[in-house]
Design a binder for these strands. Sequence first.
DNA 1: TATGTTAATATGTATGCACATATTAATTGG
DNA 2: CCAATTAATATGTGCATACATATTAACATA
Lengths: 230, 230
Amino acid sequence: MSEHSHQSIREAIRERLAAGEWAPGGLMPGETALAEDYRCARTTVNRALQSLADEGLIERKRRAGTRVIELPVRRAKFEIPIVRHEIEANGARYHPHILLNETMTAPDHIAARLRLEDGTQALHLQTLHLADGRPHAFEDRWVNIEAAPGMLEAPLDEISANEWLVRHAPYSSGDVAFSASAAAPREAAALEAREGDALFTIERTTWREESFITTMKLFYRPGYKMVTQL
Amino acid sequence: MSEHSHQSIREAIRERLAAGEWAPGGLMPGETALAEDYRCARTTVNRALQSLADEGLIERKRRAGTRVIELPVRRAKFEIPIVRHEIEANGARYHPHILLNETMTAPDHIAARLRLEDGTQALHLQTLHLADGRPHAFEDRWVNIEAAPGMLEAPLDEISANEWLVRHAPYSSGDVAFSASAAAPREAAALEAREGDALFTIERTTWREESFITTMKLFYRPGYKMVTQL
DNA sequence: TATGTTAATATGTATGCACATATTAATTGG
DNA sequence: CCAATTAATATGTGCATACATATTAACATA
């Protein structure tokens, strides 16, 4: 990373932004000017500015120039954890325990989320994720069988439903919701918690093109925190 | 976006990855080969591959080549919400209500987190964020006064502590934790909830260089979900 | 054989240039 | 004076090229 690499220039500009050299909401110098400042090609400045724009620190518009964002919204670069990785990263041994695995008619709210026609069969799975034998998270999942052929034969005691799906039915998009929920009897029993305990919860629905693949709800053991860096 | 723009090439390669054209964990063709495929310059392929690598779909190493990630970990592009924006985005009117604003000696666990010397004074703030007059979130915050000079004179009834800090004491890094907590009497009263209710909670500590600026805990009203896209 | 050295190679990146494109400012015509 | 047209301009992007750098494979040496 030499004197005028795009990275060092990016960091230099980031410093100047943090120091408030240019008014928030105001224009900052154009690429050509900065290129002269740093004695490099405009291309290089362009690259530096683009990545600062990706981070949400500045806003760029053709002809209009580059502006400093007033309230930079920090994006947390956080990754949707794969439960197994999360557990193994903590040095514990991961083990999934299948509590339920049956094909049945999905209740209305699930059918709606997976865009299933009335009365269509779906795969219902309940898994307890164990870390060193202790309950870590309880997963309640519904799978659209048509969108994931072969799922019924998957060896779920070896590979978790999530991993199987990621490998065999890759999704293109999805949505996630984080919330807190009170442990119902079912979750309390599985997680060895008390009913009503506050559980950190992730809901996720994924699809590929028009075909809805799976929806799941993951309840973490009481006290769990999902940590990330800014 | 022409025929062989870096974006269209990126999407084309993404399709081929999703279709499983190259074995997960295996090598994919080099930049030169792909450039020939798409009849473009190697630079352009490089750009496309770099962004796929940023997304976590492939892994690149000099000399070693480009590999397909076996279990692509999805990164949620989610933004740490600024409470006011979040409320206004829902079409409601935002209003902060200061419940507490005093300078006092920080308790040990706070002092530790802000790296304060024993007995140092810190600013303690409690704010209730209202959406159309109804409680939305309760914020408990401690500010390192030395790292944020001027904070004591800030007009906190007009601008929230968070916004003031973002503008006047920009931070360079921080960490965040998401969890679920049971409403203590304090939170229950502020949020008009019942004691023990499950509250979605965000904890955040931010600093700049070696100087710790602020740490806060944000309790959302019962039922709140933080939603994002994959 | 074990080990250190060297060469080969895929990606990483800086640059100059040309042209594309969005947007603002200036200009023109009614 | 207003609206439509046109020009000016800052960023966006592609390309050829040159060189940098990490890593592996081949090779030489003790």
